[in-house]
């Protein structure tokens, strides 16, 4: 699994840091997203997907292993 973000879309709502604190934080400078682990272990997949789904600005993309290797959606 790999996590990609488009930080330019972030408005700092904090949904990711709230629901997946192992993976996401917010910057001290502007409150925007910081990825703590962009290649998390599989047991965090569900949380990563929740953060992806709840993000109000579609900042987060969670790619499974196939996509990470450069599959069609990667």
């Amino acid at each position: 699994m790999r996590i990609e973000i488009d930080r330019s879309r972030c408005r700092g709502a904090g949904q990711c840091a709230l629901h997946a604190p192992e993976l996401f934080d917010q910057s001290e400078e502007d409150g925007m997203v910081v990825v703590l682990d962009d290649q998390p272990p599989p047991e965090l997949l569900e949380r990563a997907r929740l953060a992806e789904r709840l993000c109000p600005n579609s900042v987060i993309r969670v790619l499974d292993d196939e996509q990470s290797r450069g599959g069609p959606a990667g």
């Binding site: 408005r11 700092g12 904090g14 840091a17 709230l18 604190p21 934080d25 917010q26 910057s27 001290e28 400078e29 502007d30 409150g31 925007m32």
Partner: peptide, 14 residues
Amino acid sequence: TRYRRLVTRWFTVR
């Protein structure tokens, strides 16, 4: 965007 980025750091989860 400009205003949002200026005030958001005050309202983070942390």
